[in-house]
């Protein structure tokens, strides 16, 4: 279809009454692409770290996520077991094969059954990490990779996300800067922004949670308050 490509680009240029961009125009574009500029940044996310985490939690709850704040990683298994038991959900977890999650002492004090892998048909509960949180809207940012299969974010009925409080940024723009620095090359195959559990209002504008993705989104914020867990 290179003929189509040629013709479409030629029509665009004809309509813009020019040929290909001249060298200086191309250079200006390269500069704009190479040094991305942020648009206006809403003031509400410009906060000190403590208030920023509070804003993240408040915004996430506003969009029907539930949030648990724990002092350190050692508390995660009990917190998750309590959350699941409180909703009468099975303690059977499909976990992302992520070293940070593997380091959690799952079998101490809980009867949780933990396996690893991508999301498949009958998975009820998944546990993943997030690369970052965005306080502005209570949004989680998840990157795909061998340690983070994306299907875990969408297939199970309940998605539990463990996030370090230090990873909660004010804005999406800060997270893009962090992602570029962390990956140092092309973006991961998938970057997922997740703002609350799945929903629809397609039938008579009635808002219902759990359309096709998870019915429940539970966020465990690890605050690292206890130096022992630092």
């Amino acid at each position: 279809m290179s003929e189509a490509r040629t013709q479409i680009l030629a029509t665009i240029r004809g309509s813009l009454k020019r040929g290909s961009l001249p060298a200086e125009g191309q250079a200006a574009l390269d500069q704009r692409l190479g040094q991305p500029r942020s648009g206006p940044i809403p003031a509400r996310s410009q906060l000190d770290p403590v208030a920023r985490i509070d804003l993240f939690v408040g915004e996430a709850e506003r969009v029907d996520a539930t949030v648990d704040r724990v002092a350190g990683a050692a508390e995660i298994p009990t917190a998750i077991a309590t959350y699941l038991a409180g909703r009468n959900l099975p303690g059977i977890i499909k976990m992302a094969p992520d070293p940070a999650l593997r380091a959690i002492p799952w079998s101490e004090n809980t009867a949780l059954s933990v396996t690893e892998g991508p999301g498949v048909g009958d998975d009820m509960v998944s546990v993943t990490t997030a690369f970052a949180g965005v306080a502005e809207t209570g949004t989680l940012v998840l990157l795909s990779g061998p340690e983070a299969p994306t299907t875990l974010n969408f297939v199970p009925d309940t998605h539990i996300v463990v996030i370090d409080a230090g990873c909660i940024a004010g804005t999406y723009e800060q997270v893009w800067t962090e992602i570029r620095a962390a990956v140092g090359g092309p973006l991961p195959r998938t970057v997922n922004w997740i703002t609350g559990p799945s929903r629809t209002a397609d039938i008579e504008q009635t808002l219902l949670l759990g359309a096709h993705g998870p019915r429940r989104l539970h966020i465990v914020v690890v605050e690292n308050r206890d130096p022992e867990n630092g």
Partner: peptide, 20 residues
């Protein structure tokens, strides 16, 4: 404020990926 799922996808499954 933001839709629930905003997904930036860049190409097919990468080496080592378990899905995609």
């Amino acid at each position: 404020e933001m839709s629930v799922y905003t997904t930036f996808s860049s190409g097919p499954r990468r080496p080592g990926d378990l899905d995609g």
